[in-house]
Design a protein around this nucleic acid. Sequence first.
RNA 1: UGCCCGAUAGUAUAAAGGUAGUACGACGGUUUUUGGUACCGUUUGUCUAGGUUCGAAUCCUGGUCGGGCAACCA
Length: 553
Amino acid sequence: MSEERSLNFIEEIIENDLQSGKYETLITRFPPEPNGYLHIGHAKAICLNFGLTQKYGGYTNLRFDDTNPVTEKTEYVDSQQADIRWLGFEWKNELYTSDYFEQLYKFAVQLIEAGLAYVDHSTAEEIAQTKGTPTEPGTDSQYRSRSVAENLDLFTRMRNGEFPDGACTLRAKIDMSSPNMLMRDPIIYRIKHAEHHRTGNTWCIYPMYDFAHGQSDSIESITHSICTLEYVSHRELYDWFIEKLNIFPSHQYEFARLNLTYTVMSKRKLLQLVNEGVVSGWDDPRMPTISGLRRRGYTPESIREFCERIGIAKRENLIELSLLEFCVREHLNKTANRVMAVLDPIKMVITNYPEGQSEVLIGENNPEAEDKGGTREIPFSKELWIEREDFMEEPAKKWFRLAPGAMVRLKFAYIVKCEDFVKDENGNVTEIHCSYIPESKSGEDTSGINVKGTIHWVSAAHAKTAEIRIYDRLFTVESPDSEEGDFKDYLNPDSIKVIKEAFIEPYLADAKQDARYQFIRKGYYSLDTDSTPEKLVFNQTVGLKDAWAKAKK
RNA sequence: UGCCCGAUAGUAUAAAGGUAGUACGACGGUUUUUGGUACCGUUUGUCUAGGUUCGAAUCCUGGUCGGGCAACCA
């Protein structure tokens, strides 16, 4: 409690409700439809809903909003649960809207009996036509005045499967001239002879979202039903059903969904990327899905921190990807062990180091960790791999790295001086020859020499190899959704770069699946799910900030 | 053309009628055996026009701009 963060508008509402005694316990819910994988936008909602009850007491239910059997699958239920748990949250009750189908049916009967719902045999086109437009009122359906008895009979027969799909619907009888289109006798039940992932073939009629969500909230005594802005106009209907049914008054509050630069967030578009093979799957490391971020190496802590920092408000927003990247770097900087890997190798020969000799150096694992993360052994010898970009034949201004005659420190090792280099017939540098200064060894340097640059390296004789995958933003424009034409026109052709054979220090041969590493001077990396002990595969989670790359521009 | 929601630095988000702050980004610097980290500094903002008030980002009115609403999707 060192620093008091100001409350967002939902927290203000909750504190008022708790103080006024309107509610004693806070109950929220996270209600995904199991028709896709969860993404970072869902993470915002998850952190909000679960975070609120962690902060104020009470609990959060996980409720799968499974009222549309044709799009929903158990695969999605499983992945969504795994993702929520991975993020670090646990729900009180695992519930399904389909658990309430019988109760919802009774609610519908109750409405019919009150003269507030009717069976409509209009076709979909007729319903659309008589709906009116935002500026013109709709007109009553010719079936609107059916008697209660007739409606009851028809609705029973709908349930019994006497009608084919689309033959009729159950509609709430509200007001065809309401300025709110959703109040113009909304459809509340439709016929779908489809197998449901949980109820199988028990039902052939399914409630619509509006007839299911509020009542489900009410059944669970949800005190604050939090959803995104596009549901604002649904609130009137939400309240209408609760009032007419005379059930526990849950209340709906809306906040602005997350938008992130250089990606898309709609499930429809993400599904399209998966189905069309643009990405390798829902968990492709370039996807903004929770599973994609996890595979990419993001940590739950960093995602939660991100959700905390972006805030909760009602205005449309487009968050810069750099904030998400800042959050992972911040966490990984404190927790990831430093290691050395050379991604674009060039040979360095230390001319005055004895042939065939090697020695073991000690490397500190993490200068940022409280215990420095312990140490590890790093073999050193006459021939090393270094990064091609760390040598310049004709050094630029303020170049601190290798160049003819220049000195640099080899991280954890010695200071070396570039004496010579070898080129092939095409003019490419193939080898760099250096002399080392024996008394400049890390930790026991008596040379008195100060160098500006330090570079990483791997002993050629001891190096292991690994495949390394480096990712960039999936799209070339900040907001693919709001550009002209199809969003896929703006895919970044260079969103993935694969380095088939990079050299890594031996320590990494034992890399663990869940471990994150900082490849010194390069970025943060962790093993991909494709990795095997025989063939290691690392993903770059995010690169380190690179002031030199910036300075070059 | 109707109804609803919104508008504060580049991006987000605070300020509950009383000094417009914070973070990320950008830019500059210090430290550094990672051109990383850390630290310091700089830059930029209340959509607009009126009104109420001693005083308005905040309250009121008009306008402008952005978003949502016409699925048997959620």
